[in-house]
């Protein structure tokens, strides 16, 4: 078992700052998106992962661009951590022609072939088999790529999740299943939706290595991810990581959250993964508050610019709305 202390010391200053930058970019992106949504400037609905940033940042720091991920309706963070471009993401949230999918898909369907994002997904559990397929392709090609599927504890109650754990183990596929265990399936607590809330026990029963980690500790997440990714890359087959974390916001923006007391969310902010990592950066890497504040400012400026660019993008053109129903090469 890797201790948090060991995990931290294996991270150099540059990587430590990268992890911070990734987490803060996710936090600011989603905070801004939440504000834009509340102001009525984004159509549809959005789901935020504020509080869960350390899982996305820690796991994706163990991956290469050529590795694959699939993610969920709460997937902005994973896409940013995997190298998704924030301007195109913001454009897609706005439903603009310059968005990732030209406004066809919205917040829940960011995909980017260039950095291995097979796609976020609006169906709970729907992306898990696709990640299995990415791993199958990697295995067939002998490319030593790894596939990661992010999903929540809610998806563990979907049958297809278990089909995938079974299949990946049978075929010894290079995949890491990452369960972001935030204790809620939408609005229903884990005590009501999972017979066994320790998902590592379910995964271990299929015969794969399964590890629980504090999902609010980015160093610990990175350490278990590196181990799991190395196992996959070296032909050791699938692994399962359960990262216990906190969803600060409701299931969707606008969720009145009548199902939980206000104090519960207050307690979560005391476990803020970003504030914790800031302390580590200061104490163990000698990074000053000024340095971090100016990084925060740069991130905010980048995202403000992304919003401005998204707002300046043309509205998606209804004349082209049937384009890409079929891949263009086969038309």
């Amino acid at each position: 078992m890797t201790t948090t202390r060991d995990a931290r010391t294996s991270i150099g200053r540059d990587l430590a700052l990268d992890l911070y930058q990734t987490m803060m970019t996710i936090r600011r992106f989603e905070t801004i998106a939440g504000e834009l949504f509340a102001a009525g400037r984004l159509p549809g609905f959005i789901h935020l992962s504020i509080g869960q940033e350390a899982v996305a940042a820690g796991v994706c720091a163990a991956l290469e661009d050529t590795d694959y991920i699939t993610t969920t309706h709460r997937g902005h963070g994973h896409c940013i951590a995997k190298g998704g471009r924030v301007t195109e993401m913001m454009g897609e949230l706005y439903g603009r022609e310059g968005g990732y999918a030209l406004g066809r898909s919205g917040s829940m369907h960011i995909a980017d072939n260039a950095v291995g994002i097979l796609g976020a997904n609006a169906i709970v559990g729907g992306g898990i088999p696709m990640a299995v397929g990415g791993a199958l392709a990697a295995q067939l090609a002998g490319h030593r790529q790894v596939s990661v599927s992010f999903f929540g504890d809610g998806a563990v109650a979907e049958g297809v999740a278990h089909e995938c754990l079974n299949l990946a183990t049978l075929w010894k596929l290079p995949i890491v299943f990452v369960c972001e265990h935030n204790g809620y399936a939408e609005m229903t607590p884990v005590s009501t939706h999972l017979a066994n809330p320790d998902v590592t026990q379910l995964a271990a029963a299929y015969g794969m290595n399964a590890t629980a980690v504090d999902g609010n500790d980015v160093a610990a997440v990175l350490a278990v991810s590196r181990e799991a990714v190395a196992r996959a890359r070296n032909g050791g087959g699938p692994s399962f990581v359960q990262a216990r974390t906190d969803r600060w916001r409701g299931h969707f923006e606008g969720d009145p959250q009548r199902y939980r007391p206000r104090e519960e969310v207050q307690a979560m902010t005391d476990r803020d993964p970003i504030a914790a990592w800031r302390s580590v950066l200061g104490a163990e890497h000698g990074v000053s508050d000024d340095e971090l504040d100016s990084m925060d400012d740069r991130i905010t400026a980048e995202l403000t610019s992304a919003v401005e660019k998204a707002e300046a993008m043309p509205l998606s053109d209804p004349a082209g709305l049937t384009r890409f129903v079929y891949p263009e090469a086969s038309r």
Partner: peptide, 14 residues
């Protein structure tokens, strides 16, 4: 579901 989805992922990956 898993095998159709796995086929899909493999298709997306070439």
């Amino acid at each position: 579901a898993a095998i159709v989805g796995a086929a899909l992922g493999a298709a997306m990956a070439g």
